[in-house]
Simulated assay, not measured.
Amino acid sequence: MADHSIRGKVVLIAGGAKNLGGLIARDLAAQGAKAIAIHYNSAGSRADADATVAAIQASGAQAVALQGDLTTAGAVETLFADAIAALGKPDIAINTVGKVLKKPMTEISEAEYDEMTAVNAKTAFFFLKEAGKHLNDNGKICTLVTSLLGAFTPFYAAYAGTKAPVEHYTRAASKEFGARGISVTAVGPGPMDTPFFYPAEGADAVAYHKTAAALSPFSKTGLTDIEDVVPFIRHLVSDGWWITGQTILINGGYTTK
């Protein structure tokens, strides 16, 4: 019987320096992960990456910070190669990379569309590809998407639209990698209380989102708190391995499919 615990496992987290990715890293270290590779995108996130690495090491695990713009296949290949060279082959690979754009379709430029596609869809595809090539048998892969995949809303065509392919990538990967015991899932949080959310929203929209979930009155912010998402990801990359090929919306009743 395969061991599906987190203890002793090697983890790679894309976008793992801060916010949800950083909290996931700290949580998995606390659950006994042996080593965690923290990816960060640019120099602006280096201090956060270093702080997360220090927190992981303080818990007794190994950790390394790896920088890269993952919008090319080569960069994703390099990330996995560097992580393996530093810590060994991963058992768990989590991709939290994403970019939000809230804008009417009639105002979205080709350059903006191309960037959204590169960050949200292309990065996810090649992360899944490299994870499928390099994960140990009985590994776990989880990609962050968005609850807007279950919503009927304007202004998020480029964001939700470029996250939507990840559902199909997840289903295909679960079938292709399943023979090796690898489970593949996607998680779609509702609007989260992170710096990722607020720049895209006006005051009226923020006020709406803080009351839109069925459980909003019981959230400390009214939004999806990252602390409420982490336990689900922990479960999916451990004892929840039997869930595969699925996208799970975690949003307190904000929307469903």
Rank of each mutant, 00 (worst) to 15 (best):
residue 124 A to P: 05
residue 94 I to L: 15
residue 97 V to N: 07
residue 95 N to I: 14
residue 114 D to K: 14
residue 91 D to C: 02
residue 89 K to A: 11
residue 122 K to M: 13
residue 118 A to K: 11
residue 101 L to V: 11
residue 89 K to E: 00
residue 105 M to L: 15
residue 107 E to G: 10
residue 106 T to R: 12
residue 117 T to M: 14
residue 99 K to G: 12
residue 97 V to S: 11
residue 114 D to N: 15
residue 103 K to Y: 11
residue 113 Y to V: 05
residue 99 K to T: 09
residue 123 T to Y: 05
residue 98 G to P: 05
residue 103 K to W: 11
residue 93 A to E: 11
residue 107 E to C: 09
residue 125 F to I: 03
residue 99 K to I: 08
residue 95 N to T: 14
residue 103 K to T: 13
residue 124 A to D: 05
residue 128 L to H: 03
residue 116 M to L: 15
residue 111 A to Q: 13
residue 97 V to F: 11
residue 90 P to H: 01
residue 105 M to C: 12
residue 116 M to W: 08
residue 103 K to L: 14
residue 125 F to P: 02
residue 113 Y to D: 10
residue 90 P to E: 00
residue 112 E to C: 04
residue 124 A to M: 06
residue 95 N to A: 14
residue 92 I to Y: 02
residue 117 T to F: 14
residue 91 D to V: 00
residue 96 T to V: 04
residue 118 A to V: 05
residue 94 I to N: 06
residue 123 T to K: 06
residue 117 T to V: 15
residue 124 A to S: 10
residue 97 V to M: 04
residue 106 T to Y: 13
residue 119 V to M: 11
residue 108 I to A: 05
residue 100 V to D: 12
residue 104 P to G: 10
residue 127 F to C: 11
residue 124 A to Q: 01
residue 92 I to E: 04
residue 100 V to A: 12
residue 105 M to P: 02
residue 122 K to F: 11
residue 128 L to V: 03
residue 123 T to N: 13
residue 93 A to F: 13
residue 120 N to S: 11
residue 102 K to G: 04
residue 107 E to Y: 13
residue 119 V to T: 14
residue 108 I to R: 01
residue 88 G to Y: 01
residue 125 F to R: 04
residue 120 N to F: 03
residue 125 F to C: 05
residue 125 F to N: 02
residue 123 T to P: 08
residue 112 E to G: 05
residue 91 D to T: 00
residue 92 I to T: 04
residue 109 S to V: 06
residue 90 P to C: 01
residue 115 E to M: 15
residue 128 L to E: 03
residue 125 F to M: 09
residue 92 I to F: 02
residue 126 F to N: 00
residue 116 M to D: 05
residue 123 T to Q: 05
residue 123 T to L: 02
residue 100 V to N: 15
residue 115 E to R: 15
residue 98 G to D: 08
residue 110 E to W: 11
residue 122 K to I: 04
residue 101 L to Y: 13
residue 103 K to P: 10
residue 108 I to L: 08
residue 97 V to A: 10
residue 115 E to T: 15
residue 120 N to Q: 08
residue 119 V to H: 12
residue 90 P to S: 00
residue 125 F to T: 00
residue 120 N to D: 09
residue 89 K to T: 04
residue 126 F to I: 07
residue 105 M to R: 09
residue 123 T to V: 09
residue 92 I to D: 00
residue 90 P to L: 01
residue 96 T to S: 04
residue 102 K to E: 12
residue 128 L to T: 08
residue 124 A to E: 03
residue 105 M to E: 10
residue 110 E to M: 08
residue 108 I to P: 02
residue 124 A to N: 02
residue 88 G to L: 02
residue 96 T to H: 03
residue 121 A to D: 03
residue 106 T to E: 14
residue 109 S to K: 06
residue 92 I to N: 02
residue 117 T to D: 10
residue 112 E to A: 01
residue 121 A to L: 01
residue 121 A to F: 02
residue 93 A to K: 11
residue 111 A to N: 07
residue 105 M to S: 14
residue 118 A to Y: 07
residue 106 T to P: 06
residue 121 A to W: 07
residue 106 T to C: 09
residue 117 T to S: 10
residue 117 T to Q: 12
residue 101 L to C: 08
residue 98 G to E: 08
residue 105 M to N: 10
residue 88 G to S: 03
residue 123 T to F: 08
residue 98 G to N: 06
residue 108 I to S: 03
residue 121 A to I: 05
residue 119 V to F: 07
residue 122 K to R: 15
residue 101 L to N: 07
residue 125 F to Y: 07
residue 122 K to S: 10
residue 112 E to I: 04
residue 106 T to D: 13
residue 89 K to D: 00
residue 118 A to H: 08
